[in-house]
Amino acid sequence: MNKEFKVLAKPYMVWLSVLVFVPIIAMIFISFSNLNSSISVSEIALSLSHFKLLWESSTIIAFRNSLIFASATTFICFVLGYFIAYEIKLSKFKNKFILLTFVILPMWSNLILRTESLANIMSENNILKSIIGFNIFGNISGTWMAVLFGLVFTYMPFMILSVYTALEKIDYALEEAALDLGLTPFKKFWKVVFPLSFKGVVTGSIMVFLPTLAGFAIPKILSRGRIVFIGNIIENKFIYTNYNHGALLAVVILIFILGSIFLLTKFDKEGETLL
């Protein structure tokens, strides 16, 4: 491509640098200082006083909840999502695009509304029960099972898409070769197909893990406020305009995210499986 077009990237470089770095620096600064809306400029000083928040039991429990739920969701999404992606790849249906469309179609309707309707049918007397006569979930409203179910089926499409993208790129000749050399179909899968699709699994896992870890709407709606994620604490700090604490917690989440991005670049240099 013509080198002259480099100029076109300049505004984006400025835009990205400003909007990626300035907010993050502001966030780090606010979490380390006593800055708030009622303080005058001369009184601003660095302080570590907000860090006490990190050792409060409510924060630790929230972090534990977020991590446990995010890990469990990622694992379940990996097992079930990989299975679906593999079935789509194997299916004799010619138009794979339509199958993928059906997988991601639910993502096009409003996330909050979908979660709310899930919460509705998880309570004891619900609209499905009044039609089909029995309760498909039992009464799990407000429990960890409700939250896990919501998270898994909300984020699974990301896993399916990433894994499918990686699976699709595998040359069938390799699979044939593996079979010709005497592997059973099962061994072929483990020794050839799975390692080649691992890039997609990593991308998919990150795309499931991160939004789950930092989410706040789904746990709040499905647990009826009983299970607190770290996102819920940040949301509360935001509502009560305690930006220092909110910023501090957001910085901690950011550290997890940077770790994941680092992991991703090890497996996938230019983000090819991101879409």
Partner: peptide, 18 residues
């Protein structure tokens, strides 16, 4: 990739601060 991978809550909160 940062805006895509960054958690919504971090993006939202940090932009709000800016």
């Amino acid at each position: 990739n940062v805006p895509i991978l960054n958690a919504d809550i971090v993006t939202g909160f940090s932009l709000m601060l800016m």
